[in-house]
């Protein structure tokens, strides 16, 4: 699939929803719980079974990165699934140390 910045995606095997912050200019294979993610509002295949090795959870408000930082997503609804791209687990991005400026 191709994703675009600002696109809202959801897991098919848990409650997780997220939004694309950075999109690579390439086809990707983005999964949650080992199953392909779909656009929010699209039909969810209820019959899909999660890959138990990919159920570490995603936390609300956290950013996850992959593909050497060219793919970044922000979790807008938490869930039980782990996000991965082509089998590579997306990594939690370190919190931002900036002070409050406004």
């Amino acid at each position: 699939m191709r994703v675009r910045t600002g696109q809202r995606l959801q897991s098919q095997v848990c409650t997780a929803e997220f939004i694309v912050i950075k999109a690579p200019d390439a086809e990707i294979d983005l999964t949650a719980g080992g199953q392909p993610v779909v656009e929010v509002g699209a039909d969810v295949d209820q019959g899909l079974a999660p890959d138990s090795a990919m159920m570490g959870g995603t936390a609300l408000g956290k950013r996850y990165v992959g593909l050497s930082g060219t793919l970044e997503v922000l979790v807008t609804k938490p869930g039980a699934a782990t996000l991965a791209n082509a089998g590579q687990v997306l990594q939690l991005k370190a919190p931002n140390p900036l002070p409050s400026t406004d």
Binding site: G6, L60, L74, N96
Partner: peptide, 16 residues
Amino acid sequence: HSHLMSYVVQTVEFGS
């Protein structure tokens, strides 16, 4: 919306 959200997401950690 995209400008303001980019600013917020890039400079602030949610729930921090």
